[in-house]
Write a protein that binds this DNA or RNA. Structure first.
Length: 422
RNA sequence: GGAGACGUCGCAUAGUCCGGUCGAGUGCACCACCCUGCUAAGGUGGAGUCCCCGCAAGGGGACCGCGGGUUCAAAUCCCGCCGUCUCCGCCA
């Protein structure tokens, strides 16, 4: 939810944001009209209600024998109050419905346009080159007996897999490396629920255009989360969060579930795009003033991870039209995947400014002691998918894989992953 | 799965049976001031959240888990939902 005051005070800003997202500008005027209607209905209701309240006091104070006459007098007023109240409810509903459809205001500097209009901020590290024909991650993994797709499909269907042996250990190693780095930066580790109630899923904005992506358990009215961002945002819903000691930073470790609807035929090979994976997610509550600096900080932690793992990558500034509903700016870090001859997203970090917090009723106390909107940010620090980039980048001609130094302590000092039977 | 109890202002509680004088008392914590030569104690006052009108001063409305209903009037009566706890049953 954007700040309703913005709609009234600076509609042009909202419209500019919509334009940059290639989204509807008319929606802004629609919302403004709904807001005006809502307020006039409210004023009318409050006037009547005040009158009724005053009368109520009179009735209460009146001697018994006069009560009946007074009561007869207000009966009509009571009906009017009720009708006015109903109008307010309807008008507020209409306003909320319209206003909610407006996505977050994009920040200055975000490239306008759609999916392909991102801006590459930088490319870091040398792309690996091979004097042999590089294998893709699945072929390498099968050589290592690290991933079993066929049996994943047998047990659970397409886009499910077994990570086993060194594959399982590798995932844990990446996750633990990320966790340790997060701890060093003061993040509080959290293992959150992965099933959440509708209002939490709704509040984080995932039931909008991404509704198809979400698993739902109708018997229990619970949603499976596609990222721990959902639970970590819900963690402080309807609370006033104390930021007097600085930003509150969580590192959520969770399994993530995604339906991948509409991506049929895309990335069907291996574990690039799967229904279930693990992720270490950073989630930060901070003041609106500090949000942009925090965003850069999250990005730097992500880049630090990729660098530690010897991955070549680029950072892109996602175009406005490709931002999620809640995001005001988003940076993706994409690793070079040799056999795809392409960069593939390993991390994503979004600054949701106060949009998500407002939807979830999360506030903080400003300097003056007044409550104010809180800003939230999130960013990936490790996922199962990283295995893809690591295997492909560090593979050797014999099918073995060099373990990046940073990862070795998490694999009992192992320096090379050897193919089974080699 | 069955039975029951409970949900009030940061925390703890009163109020609910008998609807109005209750947006709501008390204690603790909190803030300001006063008093007391330390720590402590005592006194006075203040303080919630959200919204509307207003340049402001100020005025008004809503909020007693949530949502409906009854009524001139609901924390209080009725219904539904959610949550917490206890007992029994079951269980990886």
């Amino acid at each position: 939810m954007i700040d309703p005051a913005l709609l009234r005070d600076d509609p042009d800003l909202v419209k500019a944001s919509q334009r940059s997202r290639r989204a509807s500008e008319a929606l802004v005027d629609e919302a403004r009209e709904a807001d005006a209607e809502r307020r006039s209905a409210l004023t009318e209701f409050e006037r009547l209600r005040a009158e009724q309240n005053a009368f109520g006091k009179k009735v209460a104070a009146a001697p018994k024998e006069e009560k009946a006459a007074l009561v007869a007098q207000v009966q009509q007023l009571a009906g009017e109050v009720k009708a006015a109240g109903a109008r307010v409810t309807a008008a507020e509903e209409a306003f909320a419905q319209t206003a909610r459809r407006i996505p977050n205001i994009v920040l200055d500097g975000v490239p306008p346009g759609g999916e392909d209009d991102y801006v590459v901020l930088r490319e870091v590290g040398e792309r690996s080159s091979f004097d042999f024909a590089p294998k893709d991650h699945l072929e390498i993994a099968e050589g290592l007996d690290a991933i079993d797709m066929a049996r994943g499909a047998k047990v659970s269907g397409a886009r499910f897999y077994f990570l086993k042996g060194i594959g399982a250990r590798l995932e844990l190693a990446i996750m633990n490396l990320a966790l340790d780095r997060a701890l060093a930066e003061g993040f509080i580790p959290v293992i959150p629920p992965t099933l959440v109630r509708p209002e939490i899923m709704e509040g984080t904005g995932f039931l909008g255009e991404h509704a198809d992506e979400v698993y739902y358990l109708p018997n229990d009215e619970l949603y499976l989360t596609g990222t721990s961002e959902v639970a970590l945002a819900g963690l402080h819903s309807d609370e006033i969060v104390d930021l007097s000691k600085g930003a509150v930073r969580y590192a959520g470790w969770s399994t993530c579930y995604r339906r991948e609807a509409g991506s049929y035929g895309k990335d069907t090979r291996g574990i690039i795009r799967v229904h279930q994976f693990n992720k270490l997610e950073m989630f930060v509550y901070t003041t609106p003033a500090d949000a942009e600096a925090e965003h850069q900080r999250l990005l730097s932690y992500q880049e630090g991870m990729l660098q530690a793992l010897g991955l070549s990558y680029r950072v892109i500034d996602t175009a406005a039209g490709d931002l999620g509903t809640s995001a005001a700016r988003k940076f993706d870090v994409e690793a070079w995947v040799p056999t795809q001859d392409a960069y593939r997203e390993l991390t994503s970090t979004s600054n949701c400014t106060t949009y998500q917090g407002r939807r979830l009723g999360i506030r903080t106390r400003g300097e003056s002691g007044k409550t104010e909107a809180i800003a939230t940010l999130n960013g990936t620090l490790a996922t199962t998918r990283w295995i893809v980039a690591i295997l492909e980048t560090h593979q050797q001609a014999d099918g073995s894989v060099l373990v990046p130094e940073a990862l070795r302590p998490y694999l009992g000092g192992l320096e090379v992953l050897m193919p089974v039977g080699a």
